[in-house]
């Protein structure tokens, strides 16, 4: 078992050998990830610390292994329904809508958003930016290809958000999957269409040390199930950075069991799990 003291030693070693700083990561999850890395590499903590001091590639790989990359197409359909019927219509008349997916992982959230925007006739006005600390994930997001059989839930989620209207059960539209992605049951893949894949701008980004690296402010910032891996202090810092990166009337969208704690909460109005920037 990796203790908090072990974690502290490793974090110091990583800081010495790289620009990564895990000091303000959440203890329990961080320790769990390290336990898994030790097990997978059949090493003890001292061997791991020794190895990252002299093997840069290994260290980069370890950083990738520390980050968690769970995501789904239309994860939490209720959130996407709220977005569809209550939030996005407010932006429809704007000439452009700027969107940042912070911690985009393998990209399912980006494609969910693009599909929804297209259904609402808002695709062309959207400027979409996506970042992650893990370059392997950025490549996966760009590729937009996912396993089919393992992810049958994606299709259920798609039906709930795109085909059905939870506020009017008679309002059903038939949108074929092939409009947005091709399913190949032999190859066991779901492949997003090129017009979706070409839309977003991808960039490597570390929320611990990088601020808003884009020359723009945003109407929507997604950061779902990312800051759960940070402690309170780092959470507040990142939330404040998001706040200053939001346009007037912009929204921050967190995971279903994340919330803004402490003084930073005063900068937002909370409604249906969405955080709207307050006018100061």
């Amino acid at each position: 078992m990796v203790t908090n003291e072990d974690a502290a030693r490793l974090i110091t070693a990583i800081k010495t050998s790289s620009t990564y700083d895990f000091t303000d990561y959440s203890d329990k999850s961080f320790c769990r990830r390290i336990e898994k890395i030790l097990l997978d590499n059949n090493m003890d903590l001292n061997q791991l610390i020794h190895k990252i001091g002299k093997d840069k590639d290994f260290l980069e790989q370890m950083v990738k292994d520390i980050t968690v990359n769970t995501t789904e197409l239309f994860r939490n359909p209720e959130m996407w329904q709220t977005l569809r019927y209550h939030i996005l219509p407010k932006f429809k008349k704007n000439r452009s809508i700027f969107i940042w997916h912070a911690g985009c992982s393998s990209g399912q959230e980006i494609y969910s958003m693009l599909i929804l925007l297209n259904e609402l006739g808002m695709f062309d006005q959207a400027k979409v930016f996506a970042t992650d600390i893990n370059t392997d994930m950025l490549e996966a997001a760009k590729a937009g290809q996912y396993k089919y059989r393992f992810n049958l839930g994606y299709l259920d989620n798609f039906d709930k958000v795109i085909k059905e209207n939870p506020f009017n059960f008679e309002d059903k539209v038939d949108v074929p999957y092939e409009k947005y992605f091709d399913i190949d049951k032999v190859k066991d893949t779901i492949q997003m269409k090129p017009f979706l894949r070409e839309k977003a701008v991808f960039r490597k980004h570390d929320l611990v040390k990088d601020g808003n690296v884009f020359y723009s402010k945003f109407d929507l910032i997604f950061c779902r199930n990312v800051i759960i891996y940070f402690n309170n202090k780092l959470q507040s810092r990142v939330i404040d950075m998001f706040n200053s990166s939001l346009n007037r009337d912009g929204y921050l969208i967190l995971g279903s069991h994340e919330s803004i704690l402490g003084a930073s909460a005063n900068n937002f109005e909370r409604s249906k799990g969405f955080y709207k920037k307050k006018q100061m």
Partner: peptide
């Protein structure tokens, strides 16, 4: 524990959640 999250107790008696495998 919320559906689809791991639930931890951190030192200092706070919950923390995780979406790891």
């Amino acid at each position: 524990a919320p559906a689809n999250y791991h639930m931890y107790i951190e030192l200092g008696n706070r919950f923390s959640l995780s979406t790891e495998d």
